[in-house]
Design a protein around this nucleic acid. Structure first.
Length: 347
DNA sequence: AACCCGGGGAA
DNA sequence: TTCCCAGGGTT
């Protein structure tokens, strides 16, 4: 075994780690090993690119520097800090988890306890366990699945659980037991910067020698993901109603399936009697499978102070000044429409 | 296993 | 425009 190790090239892990130490991005959450901050960053990074996370992470940890400070926050505060980042159940679960952890005596330090926190699945539990606590857990995200599919030149559908399980076992086989956190980050960094989805930069790849897809020339077509559904196109109208320097917003009901508790602009459904004064413009907005085309109209006068909601799902309404907008959970559609109306949300 | 959830940046 | 991103929860 010693002889074999001497005459063979370095393994996947060694090559990844050597490459990572020279080429990794300087991201803010890589400057700490505080489990709380590692956890915050990993939740924010769920389905969200690193570059998009950076400003949110900086603001969030400035506002909630410790687990205890987050546990003591109101949900509105956490949602306001998350506003614009999307997948808002992440913020709700973050708050629940913080309170559970504080009640249990602090942030958990073993995999099963971390995995048991709301909003923490297999990936996030492995990432936090390895990065913050040095535990030998393979963190298998979309990047890792892509790298494995190419290294193995495996065209199995990564939407299937069987494929994911098999690919995860491959990563576990590669995992560096002594530096699991760096290994996991190195593999993801490779996927994020070299092993790109459409046009992989194989010439710059540290593990090209061991990559069957690079040899076969099939890398750009991997991984295979079968499912795709037709999007729904929807048109809607939003009203910007101003009164004494304030704008009218509607609060999505707490039990709503989407955007519960968030403030949005009124629609024709909310204000059936509204008379559009001026067309301010239009914008497109995608929510999961829905593709909206919003038309934005200014409307003024002739409205009750706080019109009774007409739809069963509608919640409260209120008037807000521009300065108050950063302190509430504001829907991104409202932010876009208010920009058209010349009422930027000062962030 | 299928479906749902936001939003943005890159190609 | 399309794709998909350091995914997780619910049914």
């Amino acid at each position: 075994m010693g002889l074999r190790a001497r005459i063979t090239r370095p393994g996947i892990a060694a090559r990844l780690l050597a490459w990572y130490s020279d080429h990794h991005r300087d991201l803010p959450w890589r400057r700490t090993s505080d489990p709380y901050r590692v956890w915050i960053s990993e939740v924010m990074l769920q389905q969200t690119r690193a570059q998009a996370v950076i400003p949110y992470y900086e603001r969030f940890v400035a506002q909630f520097p410790t687990l205890e400070s987050l546990a003591g926050a109101r949900e509105e505060q956490a949602l306001a800090a998350w506003s614009g980042l999307g997948y808002y159940s992440r913020a709700r679960n973050l708050l629940k988890a913080a309170r559970l952890a504080v009640a249990a005596g602090g942030f958990p330090s073993d995999y099963d306890a971390i995995r048991g926190l709301p909003g923490v699945g297999d990936y996030t539990a492995a990432a936090v366990s390895s990065i913050a606590f040095g535990l030998p857990c393979a963190a298998v995200d979309g990047n890792a699945l892509r790298v494995v599919s190419r290294v193995k030149n495996d065209a199995s559908d990564i939407g299937s659980m069987a494929t994911r399980r098999r690919f995860a076992e491959t990563v576990t086989g590669w995992l560096d037991q002594r530096r699991p956190g760096d290994f996991n980050q190195a593999l993801m960094e490779l996927g994020a910067t070299i092993c790109l989805p459409r046009q992989p930069l194989c010439d710059e790849c540290p593990i090209r020698d061991g990559c069957l897809a690079a040899t076969a020339g099939s890398a750009a077509g991997l991984p295979v993901k079968l499912r795709k559904e037709d999007p729904l196109h929807i048109r809607a109208t939003l009203f910007v109603v101003r009164r004494r320097g304030r704008v009218l917003l509607i609060r999505e009901d707490s039990g709503a399936r989407r955007m519960a508790g968030f403030w949005r602009l009124p629609t024709t459904e909310d204000l059936p009697g509204a008379t559009p004064r001026e067309r301010l413009g239009e914008f497109r907005h995608s929510i999961t499978r829905h593709r909206y085309l919003f038309e934005v109209y200014a409307s003024s006068g002739g409205l009750p102070a706080c019109p009774a909601p007409t739809s069963a799902a509608a919640g409260a309404c209120a008037w807000f000044s521009p300065a108050e907008l950063p302190t509430i959970p504001l829907a991104t559609t409202a932010r876009k429409a208010l920009n058209l109306a010349g009422i930027p949300r000062s962030s």
